[in-house]
Design a protein around this nucleic acid. Structure first.
Lengths: 210, 210
DNA sequence: CAAAAATACAGGGAAAACCCTGAAAATTTG
DNA sequence: CAAATTTTCAGGGTTTTCCCTGTATTTTTG
């Protein structure tokens, strides 16, 4: 059995190099490479381009890994997604797995682990490292209260620019006092004490990419 | 002639994959891989480990690419350094070239460009893409006033946390008014209008890694 | 060594951010 | 449809940030 793989990553050298590694594995061949999620989804309109597995980076321009995975799994549930990211952040990992990824490989992954992961995902349907499993278990216990509303997320993204809250209110077409309300609830939910903390949270949790 | 290459990058898959690419090039072989600058410098204490060329990432834990290159070029001026980074930020590129790098490859570099760059660096002594050349020219014209003082850089790093300026003053063992002075001069130099802008600048220019 | 420049710090005022309480208006739900 | 909840927004006060002018103190430089 031979499996086709697509690598999606905006870092060209990385995707090309990973493609090379995958091509070297038994039973796997690389179909093509993509620079971002948009490019991948466009390509998949042609049935010839549908792979068995997608190796997907998370931080990407235009359409990131989480959004791309959500759309991809809706349209093509059979295509397996293996997340491949530099960041090892709990929140992001959970988001990616919720979106439908079958596994999550970190930046310190070695060649033979990549091969093992590819094989297990195609055969068992999933591959979780110990670190990822532990995060999953912890998340069940803690039940992280991070169900941010749409408006709150929109606010956070704007709070990551050098706009004042008054300017943010204009941009969101609402009162300045409403923006203060968003800020207060976000501060409470995320246990953050000021706007700098909010920016750092947003970056770490991929709500905002600087 | 056969040249030895060392790859320094905290992203294991990337360094391994790039190592694979380089190993495939004529006249080049990979000596070893490193996870950060500290690891590289330690290894170089053994004369057997001194390569002809180092492919160096910039964002790394412990010791970053700029600092590592500075130390490396002082101790071993003959070793060529080729920067290999995800970020294409003017300030960082200039810093890296000033530190002694013989070239700067961006994230969209392709396999054959990498080979060409390696060959040119070893033969001509340098390799600059059009983008990098343009940045160099622009910098000469604009003479970017970004010679931040030590204290200002220390301040910026602290301003990237959720500390108040009062707390920063305590941390820096100086008056609150002095901290305000640092802030004002930094705002002026970098043409920034508030603390969020400063954080974003610091991230983009690798003064701070979130 | 004197002039110039850089550095550390102050006063004081305006703007923005922070943080309560509370109350219409809209939405969800039994 | 009425009750409960969520969302939007207001008043008002405190703290922090921002920004100006100005002045000793130290350092650099001709």
């Amino acid at each position: 059995m031979n499996y086709s793989v697509v690598v999606v990553d905006d870092h060209f050298l990385l995707s090309q190099a990973i493609g090379g590694l995958v091509q070297g594995f038994k039973n796997f061949n690389v179909l093509f490479l993509c620079k971002n999620g948009k490019e991948l989804l466009d390509k998949l309109n042609n049935p010839k381009n549908i792979p068995d597995l997608v190796l997907m980076d998370i931080k990407m321009p235009i359409l990131n890994g989480i959004e791309t995975t959500e759309i991809l799994k809706k349209k093509f549930p059979k295509v397996k997604v293996l997340a491949l990211s530099i960041e090892e952040d709990e929140y992001t990992i959970l988001k990616m797995l919720k979106a439908g990824a079958s596994g999550y490989l970190m930046k310190d992954t070695k060649k033979n682990i990549l091969e093992k992961a590819l094989i297990e995902v195609m055969q068992k349907g999933y591959y979780y490292t110990n670190t990822v499993s532990q995060i999953l278990i912890d998340s069940l216990e803690n039940e992280i209260d991070t169900d941010l509303k749409e408006k709150e997320i929109e606010f956070i993204k704007l709070a990551c620019t050098d706009m004042s809250y008054k300017e943010i209110a204009d941009a969101m077409c609402c009162s300045y006092k409403t923006v203060e309300g968003y800020r207060d609830s976000v501060h409470k939910k995320l246990k953050i004490k000021n706007r700098i903390g909010l920016v750092l949270f947003a970056i770490h949790h991929n709500l905002f990419t600087p």
